[in-house]
Structures are given as structure tokens and as C-alpha cells.
């Protein structure tokens, strides 16, 4: 029984890892080797592709641009979602259920629907081609998700804690920051992880709202096609580099990530 289980797990992990291995494999090859024939590992490993990414300004600035708007988005999402999630988990108020569902509907809105209006809106307010425009646009789906996850985590904190703190003379802001937030630290970490992830992987809005100054790495990657054909090696290296921040972030929340995927409600 356990043997069969481990076998299933191994096969699935193999299925997950082979394509990623292939990407890493290609990023370490020269273009001549890539197009010359199929090799299971690089016969003449080279870091040239990575050198291109870390020395050419259009590459590394786009990488930094992405990191900038993603961090902005995480901070904004958390700041507005924390109090709101507390309200949803502790109080009943006029229209609370409708408000909650309305928030969720924004997670369901296809980004394609919002392309043109976003473009016009952010051009009109003069934010086009800035990281903050992308950060705000990504709030559309990240804030509802953040509220959803945080609400799940907060609901599992017993209400008696709030009451005791108020009896002890804590004011709401003091209680919230000093006592409540530390208690749901895993929840905050997981929420930050999810906001990071969904903002980092999104292409459509990020590409539409930027042109030159704030170009994200995902958009830069679509421009590896030149007269000489696609630069496969650099493209693969960029893919590997784009994977790294996610791996780093998941390492920090590895113990709580499973609960986070269930939006805190198991």
C-alpha cells in the first residue's frame, strides 16, 4: 500500500519536474547546441545566457520593475485587506454578505475584460507605464483573495481573546497591532505569498499597462524574437530567473502553505 503510494507520488513529481529540468537544461546550453540536436544534459555547459540577462539593461531593469510592482502590490493588498478581513470575521454589518460576494466577483473578472478600460483609466490619471499602475491593477484580483484567506485565518482565532483584551483596557488599534496580528502571523505570511504569486505570474495586465519605463520581465520575455529567430537559450535562462523569487518565497511559508491553499478554512 505505502509502496504504491510512494510510486504514485514519485511519478507525479517526475511529471512536474521534467519540464522544469528541461528549461534549466536549455538555459545552460548555447543556441548552437540547442538547435544542433537533442541532448539530455548540456555537453558544453555555459553561463552565457545568464550573463546576457544580468548585464543587458533591458533585461535586469525589467526584472527589477517586476519585483517593484509585485512588492508594492503585496504591501497595498495586505494593508487594506487586514482591517477588512477582521471586520468580516468579527462583525455583522449592513450588507456584509453582499459586500463579500461582490469582492469575490472581482477575483472572477477575466483580466481581458478590463484591458481597455484600465489602459484608458490609468492613462487618464497619468499613471500609465509606472509600477504603481500595475500594482493597483493587480489589486483587482489580489485584494479579494487576501480578504478571503485572512478572513479564514482570523475566524479560527477565538473571539474571547478580543474580549479579554478590551477588558484589559486595550484600544482597538493597539489590540489589533500588538496582539491580534502576531497571532495570525502564518496567515499573513501565506496571504503575502499568494499576492506575490498571482502578481508575479500575471502577464496580460502587466504588459498592457506598461511600455518602456516599467516594462516587466514577463513582457520582456515575449521580445526575444529577433531577425535571427528566437533566442532559445536566453529565453530559457529568463524563465529560470523568473522562477527563483517564487521558490524563495515559498521556502519561508512552507509549513503553512497547505492551509493557505485552503484559504484558511479547513
Amino acid at each position: 500500500m505505502t509502496l504504491r503510494k510512494s510510486l504514485v507520488m514519485l511519478l507525479y513529481l517526475l511529471f512536474v519536474l521534467v519540464p522544469i529540468y528541461w528549461l534549466v537544461n536549455m538555459s545552460l546550453k548555447s543556441n548552437r547546441e540547442i538547435l544542433g540536436g537533442l541532448t539530455l544534459w548540456p555537453t558544453a555547459p555555459t553561463l552565457d545566457n545568464y550573463r546576457v540577462i544580468f548585464t543587458e539593461p533591458s533585461w535586469y531593469t525589467s526584472y527589477l520593475n517586476s519585483l517593484t510592482y509585485v512588492s508594492m502590490n503585496v504591501v497595498i493588498s495586505l494593508l487594506v485587506a487586514l482591517p477588512a478581513a477582521y471586520a468580516f470575521s468579527r462583525f455583522r454589518f449592513l450588507g456584509d454578505k453582499h459586500m463579500f460576494f461582490w469582492l469575490l466577483t472581482n477575483r472572477m473578472a477575466p483580466p481581458a475584460v478590463f484591458l481597455l478600460p484600465f489602459f484608458q483609466l490609468y492613462s487618464a490619471v497619468g499613471l500609465f507605464d509606472t509600477p504603481i499602475a500595475v500594482a493597483l491593477a493587480h489589486c483587482l484580483f489580489n485584494v479579494p483573495l487576501a480578504v478571503w484567506i485572512l478572513e479564514g485565518f482570523m475566524s479560527s482565532v477565538p473571539k474571547e481573546i478580543d474580549e479579554t483584551a478590551y477588558i484589559d483596557g486595550y484600544t482597538f488599534p493597539k489590540f489589533f497591532v500588538r496582539i491580534f496580528l502576531p497571532m495570525i502571523r502564518p496567515g499573513i505570511g501565506v496571504t503575502a505569498f499568494f499576492c506575490f504569486m498571482f502578481s508575479w505570474v500575471e502577464l496580460l495586465l502587466a504588459r498592457t499597462l506598461t511600455s518602456v519605463d516599467a516594462k516587466p520581465i514577463v513582457a520582456q520575455m515575449t521580445r526575444t524574437v529577433s531577425a535571427a529567430g528566437i533566442d532559445w537559450g536566453v529565453l530559457a535562462a529568463a524563465g529560470v530567473v523568473a522562477l527563483l523569487p517564487g521558490v524563495a518565497v515559498i521556502y519561508f511559508v512552507r509549513n503553512h502553505v497547505a492551509k493557505g491553499f485552503a484559504l484558511g478554512r479547513v
Binding site: 512536474v16 519536474l17 522544469i20 505570474v201 502577464l203 520575455m221 524563465g239 523568473a242 522562477l243
Partner: peptide
């Protein structure tokens, strides 16, 4: 891992 890969990648 696959969830963290940018969608165009």
C-alpha cells in the same frame, strides 16, 4: 513549483 512559474513561461 508549477504554480510559481509565470504564465508565459
Amino acid at each position: 513549483l508549477p504554480l510559481l512559474v509565470p504564465w508565459n513561461v
